[in-house]
Design a protein around this nucleic acid. Structure first.
Lengths: 411, 411
DNA sequence: GCAAGCCTGGTAAGCGCTTACCGAGCTGGG
DNA sequence: CCCAGCTCGGTAAGCGCTTACCAGGCTTGC
């Protein structure tokens, strides 16, 4: 191996090109022409060997393979993509706050606004939007599955406030064979338009005639959690600290919780005052405001996800409120950090990585137009009882506990 | 807006192609020919308007822009890349354990081996390699910077044990305009070969004649930490729990620590017994073995990074060892989680996101052959004293504390 | 009022690859 | 022994875009 096509027989075709920049002798990567010349065959033969078409004669094959190894040739993806109409790339769009404003003490946001801008920059959680994310774990799952098919992940973030994400997403789409959209990055009409041009998987919400959705069973998980809190613990006042207001997952979780609370005759607080943004910092700010407002806290705060729970617990602890003795807190997702909190977080586990793997597999089947893919996949969730709900360390109360839900398919 | 080229004048050129698959009427995305036809101009004019070349007449421009908006046209990246020789994609390679084996109780690894296989799958940290990573934060920095230039990130992981990563990395290279390599993914000769064909930035180690390196000031940060432990706290026995054996960062940190320990006349343990893998799970296993072996623990365990510190603290706590009273523990990186541990982690802060942004900027300058880029950039680090070293909560001892290092450039 | 330019827009080549098509050389059956 | 039929490799078209080059219509200066 080694050796680039700069030495001997590399004449003929285009010279090294516009090379010669600073810092070493950068040579243009070898092309299929270089290989063909080195092997003494035509480019068609090289291509055939590389793609295993119509097996060429063993001798030809050998010559080509030797030349390929010699030159370290790998086909240029752009050229190949243009020709076969397949880029072997899937785009992933994550929605996150990009503009981390200056640390905000406790800005007052007009009630009722969806505005989550004030929820950034809580000092103790600076940089948090940068790390330990649910998104990252899902993406890792996608990557694992993609790897098996030779695909790579093209990742792009759009700001949560970016309501014209359409343009940015479309640009990504043109660099990919298919798209996976986290949460809710597009308005329905944009989604519809996009999905007519390229396969699209959403990770929250409902499938549309042209998209598929992969999600987890919010209802079953939340129901188990709610019943545990309502009946096993007997809590009668609860608050739901939400994610983005327009997040389908957050909405679904709230709905189930509300139904259960109603059925049990318990009081549930939610709404603008309880509007978080899926981040610890956002939840921390919300909790501070709640505390400052003087309203009595509910007995348990059910958070839309684990990170929010982290923020809530942080502020409560700092304010001298004992968790779970005075106020219990629960999460959703079961990210790795959940079990390292004090008290350990009671939460609902989603198969995070599997969510990503499944999303890729469905997308792949759409891209390759294989079997008609299932368009609505729901992965099971289950309650993970730890300490923050008020249970004994590590133990589980009898009754509702390990409610695994079923894999639910809808054609 | 809206409307695809399926309605009226979309005849002429290639029909929707092989479309018509299951699930909705997928139409091929519009091409520049569709736009040209709709606007009644040639494709050259469309291209010129799109790329702002030789301003066309305002009226022509308008017609084209209207057609573009109408059709929702965005050029196909593969075709564009092939033509302009720029993909607007940077590849990022992360090295991580991909094959998470079954939970291992305490496998015995032959002393002296670099083998880190046994360091996965510590139950309490299952999935940890999937989340909260330093890598992710760096990547986010890269993404931020890339976004400004219209670039996207193509991400691929290679297994730490993959010693023939060359092939996989090269494939990624062909999909990108430049590469950013985390840690040490390639052998020097592979790196050399690769970097001759495409711009490469490493995030650990030394620059080579054909690559640039962006790193942070391990020496200054570790020196401050070491002196704090040695002189402010007066510890005389220390252990260094390393990252991957071949990791330049881990080695550099060890070197500085060793030099300081020697100068202070303290004892430093390190070596195979202390070989971790940058993950909490790995560090946990190492710590358990250490405990099991009966060797007395040093007064302080200095970890190669924060995640390792997390693993060490977890095991110590479970074994009834008080941190920091009996054994102090420190990290490196200052990931967001560090301040949420109990006790809060004393560590050395690296400007993680900035590392990524800088890496991209340097890479970009190489890609666009601008100004000769600096080839060796070292970002400052500083000691963050919290509790796990033995300091009072939140306080800082007098003396060595906030040693900011300088931005150090080497031509 | 006419020619020298300038500006504009079209035509076509080419980026590096895949593959349909074709022709040459072999094999083997009649 | 001859030709049908097959195998193998080369030639060339084309993927969707950018851009060099060119031609035609205007402007403009004398």
């Amino acid at each position: 191996m080694t050796v680039l096509a700069d030495g001997g027989q590399a004449a003929g075709r285009a010279a090294p090109g516009a090379a010669g920049g600073q810092g070493g002798d950068s040579a243009a990567p070898p092309t299929i022409y270089d290989v063909a010349r080195a092997a003494g065959v035509s480019i068609a033969s090289v291509s055939r060997v590389l793609n295993g078409r119509r097996n060429p004669r063993p001798e030809t094959r050998d010559r080509v393979q030797r030349a390929v190894a010699e030159l370290g040739f790998v086909p240029d993806s752009a050229a190949r993509a243009l020709s076969v109409r397949l880029k072997e790339v899937v785009g992933i769009v994550v929605r996150r706050p990009l503009s981390a404003g200056p640390p905000v003490p406790a800005p007052w946001v007009p009630a009722g606004a969806w505005d989550t801008a004030g929820l950034l920059g809580y000092d103790a959680f600076a940089d948090e939007t940068e790390s330990l994310q649910f998104h990252d774990m899902v993406n890792r799952g996608v990557e694992r599955a993609a790897q098996r098919r030779g695909f790579d992940l093209l990742i792009r973030s759009v700001d949560i406030t970016d309501h014209d994400a359409g343009r940015r997403v479309l640009a990504l789409a043109r660099k990919s064979d298919g798209l996976i959209l986290h949460d809710r990055v597009l308005e329905p009409d944009q989604l519809d338009q996009l999905s007519r041009q390229i396969p699209v998987i959403t990770l929250a919400g409902e499938p549309t005639p042209t998209t598929a959705n992969v999600g987890s069973d919010n209802a079953t998980g939340m129901r188990a959690l709610a019943r545990h809190l309502l009946y096993d613990h007997g809590y009668t006042t609860l608050g739901y600290l939400g994610g983005y207001g327009d997040s389908p997952d957050s909405q679904a979780r709230l709905e189930t919780l509300a139904a259960e609370a109603r059925a049990a005759g318990a009081v549930l607080f939610s709404g603008p005052q309880w509007q978080g943004n899926y981040y610890a910092a956002g939840a921390a700010v919300v909790t501070e405001r709640l505390l400052a407002s003087g309203t009595p806290l509910p007995r348990v705060i059910v958070c839309a996800n684990d990170q929010s729970a982290l923020g809530v617990m942080y502020v409560l602890r700092r304010s001298g409120v004992d968790v779970p003795e005075q106020v219990a807190v629960t999460g959703f997702d079961d990210i790795p950090m959940a079990r390292h909190l004090h008290p350990q977080l009671t939460t609902v586990r989603q198969p995070i990585g599997e969510l990503g793997e499944t999303a890729f597999e469905v997308l792949y089947s759409m891209i390759s137009r294989e079997q008609p893919a299932e368009r609505d996949i729901t992965l099971p969730t289950r309650l993970i009882c730890r300490e923050s709900c008020g249970c004994q360390s590590g133990g589980k109360l009898a009754g509702v506990t390990d409610l695994s839900s079923v894999r639910h398919l809808r054609p």
